[in-house]
Design a protein around this nucleic acid. Sequence first.
DNA 1: TAGTTGCATTGACAAATATCAAAGGGGCGC
DNA 2: GCGCCCCTTTGATATTTGTCAATGCAACTA
Lengths: 252, 252
Amino acid sequence: MHANVKQNVVPLITSGLKVACSQCNLRELCLPLGLSEQDMGRLDSLIGGGRKLKRGHHLYRAGDPFESIFAVKAGFFKTDVLTEDGRDQVTGFQMAGEILGMDGISTETHTCNAVALEDSEVCLIPFTELEMLSSEIRSLQHHLHKVMSREIVRDHGVMMLLGTMRAEERLAAFLLNLSQRFSARGYSPAEFHLRMTREEIGSYLGLKLETVSRAFSRFQDEGLISVQQKHIRILDIPRLKVLLTPADGRIG
Amino acid sequence: MHANVKQNVVPLITSGLKVACSQCNLRELCLPLGLSEQDMGRLDSLIGGGRKLKRGHHLYRAGDPFESIFAVKAGFFKTDVLTEDGRDQVTGFQMAGEILGMDGISTETHTCNAVALEDSEVCLIPFTELEMLSSEIRSLQHHLHKVMSREIVRDHGVMMLLGTMRAEERLAAFLLNLSQRFSARGYSPAEFHLRMTREEIGSYLGLKLETVSRAFSRFQDEGLISVQQKHIRILDIPRLKVLLTPADGRIG
DNA sequence: TAGTTGCATTGACAAATATCAAAGGGGCGC
DNA sequence: GCGCCCCTTTGATATTTGTCAATGCAACTA
């Protein structure tokens, strides 16, 4: 009961440990389009193979020396930042095809923790080598820049969420985002298992776990979703989207 | 009375419009260290010269096609994201030596607005050319990656602020951040002019302008700062820092 | 299968922040 | 130099979210 309902024919979860990029089902998510066979081969030899992580284990921790970025091959991660004064902020949840670790480039040290929320597998991408190769393959270089830029844009979206939305809006945005990402990976957009606790959702959304729980309950009472612990079924996507539109038309 | 109190001998604000990077006072902030004279020359010929903006004018708008990133040569900017449903979130304030526009790389379109909050000047850095040159100059390539990564890390800091801090903590963090950045540019860390309104501060910090104003007043009542409209003088940096430590030692 | 443990839900109450409203101050344009 | 407009401050009140506490549920272990 842990796997999501599969809608698509393409199997996206691979099991082998050393799968070449050229053979990987996630390559449309990870890689630039239109790489020549030769370039693809050079990329294959760069990737340091896979690494499996059991649920709860760290992929890296804040303070670890930065050497690689990681592509999620299968599973589910969270990243969080911990400050000396004890604050803890979940900065993101990552699923198959998404890239982890780019925060470490600037200081040569990882600045956040990455934890597997279920048994997971990643590709190791040694960064120095990636830079060398990308200076030779223009489309790869540009793709790397796009991936980093996308992370910046994503972060701006989270700021918008944290800065302007109230609790129910935040949760609606969160659910719709997950729905869309599962959908893009061939899973049901309407039915999925949350891999994270209410507390982790709360940390990500800037809310206390009780507030998250209450918002879930209210959504259920209103017939928007059905919740059973971590099992979510979205019953009314359009109305969830309407929730994101502030009641008073702030436009104009 | 609009200029900040200068402490340092090095004049950081340039006035000429076309200043070569090699001659620019900001090069330690903008550029990688240890560029050869030859490479510096190639970079100089890449930079599309400066552009001046009057206060209130847009450097770019969300939706504009992405062609360049920008280095702030002088002045002060804000960036903000506007959604269809009318939400408005200030995502950052940028000062001399900082880079603007990297959000546009991923979609080839700017995703936020950049507005000059005072008369300002930027360097135009055509991005395609920058990518070409950086594939030939390794330290330049790596520097670009660092700058983008730094932006990601900065965004995580804002998420932490928005997700875990209460109003006064947010404002204290904001003031200390400005103080530190002014200081790094040779200005007084203790006395400066805010270029933005209370509403813009509030948007950045996820607060209403009245809450910002009240927090300023309370800081003043407690002798932490002195406020006169946009003129700020920080009287007690250590105690401001203590404010950032949650009262209950959440550690352990 | 019973017991343990962690996670989730719910209620009552407290605290923080937003909202609404009014008035004061300063800078900019004329 | 004057006046207007925008920004800021402050107060009273409403709303939202957090806090504390108790109970429930479900999965894992022994």
